[in-house]
Design a protein around this nucleic acid. Sequence first.
DNA 1: CCTTGTGTTCTCCG
DNA 2: CCGGAGAACACAAG
Length: 284
Amino acid sequence: MPELPEVETIRRDLSARILGTKITKLELLSPQSVLGNKKEFSTQILGSSFREIDRIGKLLIFVLQKGKYLLIHLKMTGQLIYQTKQELIPGGHEGGEVKELPNKMTRVVFSFSDDGKLYFNDQRRFGYLKIVDAKELAKIKEKFGPEPLQAEFNASFLKKLLRGRRGNIKALLLNQLHIAGLGNIYADEALFRAGIRPMRLAGSLSEVETKKLAQEIKGVIKSAISHRGTTFSDYRDATGKRGGFGVKLQVYGRSKEKCYRCGRAITKVKLAGRGTHFCPYCQK
DNA sequence: CCTTGTGTTCTCCG
DNA sequence: CCGGAGAACACAAG
């Protein structure tokens, strides 16, 4: 599940590799992964290059020429893997962790003028690629709240956000309108770190809890980025490697296992329609 | 049936 | 009865 740290890792990896390099070939192996007119999509991409790669929440924004933007959302199983000309040679990469591409999950392939290739893989085809203009992009950006690592995301912002809310805190943390980039893994991890049960009503958090939660959201996201994200199942970085934050997870995916803090069993329930993990002893 | 991210729709409440 | 909030549902595919 690529959330903010995973998408940011890919953004940084790709930014160091493909900016300014001409796209010479585009293969739509699964046309349904491209939203809108496929022919127009190809026309906009071919012969162009990416000037910059931005991100808002979990959405990647590749800046093309002429006020056009390529949006890529990985949803649950999407991957963006780049291979240089050298790595494309069978056996030409060291370590062996880079798999042979394309594979049966490959939906779109970008070829560059330096013979590098970018593969969009997506087992479940929930992810998408879409070209928008500046106006459409501005409208999309309106649908995102501040990101955890932006300065405006602090205790006083969270306090205002939680005031008077009757819904549970977990659902609020997942709502991209309010906070951009948190998904199921980091919402559960941040709540564990803050010692707050996911089903607590958002408006019931004390000032101290709110401050702690704001800090822990920032902390877990920052740490996850520094470990290049979490690979729970499908996530890979732009070089095909797994993220290193999995070993740091305290509750996500640890149902019935012992809490590292108190030794009691981690509980899993369904909340806000999502699998939700917490320690009934450490989280109040 | 499950998994999650997101967009839409429905209902509730003040 | 309006509007916002929040819950519920739909959908993607294996």
